[in-house]
């Protein structure tokens, strides 16, 4: 069964069957990761470029590992260009890469819409590894995989995304994916961090972290970008931690089994207290491992699209 699209630009509009297929395929690859020899020849002869215009060591390493495990040829291109010359560099880089006839491009960029732009000028399969505050679909998928692994299902679960929703690419991918899979999704954070009209995506907005803990099965806690403090969309890190941070005292108050996700890297003492970050409720390191498996699944499904279609 081929995927709905030959690119993975976001989880918006991706049908349920496709998400299901990716997650199920990831289960197989998750098993591969437990073997002594963790490599399969699936993408032998395919060339993948990891085009990272924004620094993200974790995501890049995760993609790179997934690609190596599938035996693909990898080219890494990382740059954090100066903002003034950004445009020229960007266009020239893309033209150059395209001229090398690559099969897939994994792209990360600070500006929303760059993966869409690539689909217009390149014949490669495009995988979005995070664009602006838009989407980060493989993160959304690995979060769903981790939730499903923990609960055995996604449908009917109550999931709250906590933090700076306005500037998050993880939030939108989670919202689109989880809604498609039948979860009940809400967001929690200070009003200044909730983008306008988000309710129209069918999510509830709460501003009390206690309420979020009380009412949900899963909290997906976003990283507070420390540099945003200067933009003054919240008063201080200390205050944020006191009112929106997740601490063991808060969790104990409700005495319930809640699952805590975090896309990393964690700001200990800000969105999560240190004991929560290492505590029994979080599955943060599982997410990291699952991330490789989910990315393998996506690369495999897109990379073998033609062969599978012709069968």
């Amino acid at each position: 069964m081929p995927l709905f699209s030959r690119h993975l630009l976001g989880l918006q509009g991706v049908p349920r069957e496709d998400i299901q297929l990716i997650l199920d395929t990831a289960v197989t690859f998750r098993e591969v990761l437990e073997r002594p020899i963790k490599r399969v020849p699936t993408l032998q002869g395919k060339t993948i470029v990891n085009l990272f215009f924004e620094n993200s060591t974790r995501t890049r390493i995760s993609f790179e590992l997934a690609q190596k495990r599938l035996s693909a040829d990898i080219v890494n291109f990382s740059t954090s260009t100066s903002s003034t010359k950004k445009g020229e560099t960007f266009k020239d880089t893309v033209k150059n890469i395209e001229a090398m006839k690559v099969d897939m491009i994994v792209v990360r960029h600070a500006s929303s819409g760059v993966p869409q732009y690539l689909t217009r000028i390149s014949n490669a399969n495009i995988i979005n590894a995070g664009d602006g505050a838009h989407e980060h679909p493989t993160q959304g998928l690995l979060d769903m995989y981790s939730i499903r692994e923990k609960f055995g299902k996604i449908e009917g679960l109550k999931v709250c995304i906590v933090g700076d929703i306005s500037h998050s690419r993880v939030a939108l991918s989670n919202i689109f994916g989880l809604k498609t899979m039948g979860a009940d999704v809400s967001v929690c954070g200070p009003a200044t961090m909730i983008p306008r009209c988000i309710e129209k995506l069918g999510v509830k907005v709460v501003h009390s972290i206690d309420q979020a803990i009380e009412q949900n099965d899963v909290l997906n806690v976003l990283r507070i970008q420390l540099e945003r403090q200067a933009g003054a969309s919240f008063p201080s890190l200390r205050e944020y931690h006191n009112y929106f941070g997740i601490t063991s005292e808060r969790l104990e108050k409700f005495n319930k089994n809640i699952v805590i996700l975090h896309p990393g890297p964690i700001n200990r003492g800000v969105e999560l207290s240190s004991d929560v970050a290492d505590g029994p409720f979080q599955i943060i390191l599982d997410q990291v491992t699952n991330g490789v498996a989910v990315r393998m699944a996506v690369l495999y499904l897109l990379g073998t699209l033609n062969t599978r279609e012709s069968r």
Binding site: G113, D131, R169, P195, R196, C197, K200
Partner: peptide, 13 residues
């Protein structure tokens, strides 16, 4: 413009 579409597209508005 800020509103639902900017939220949907993840663009600064």
């Amino acid at each position: 413009n800020e509103g639902f579409t900017s939220t949907f597209l993840g663009l600064p508005a």
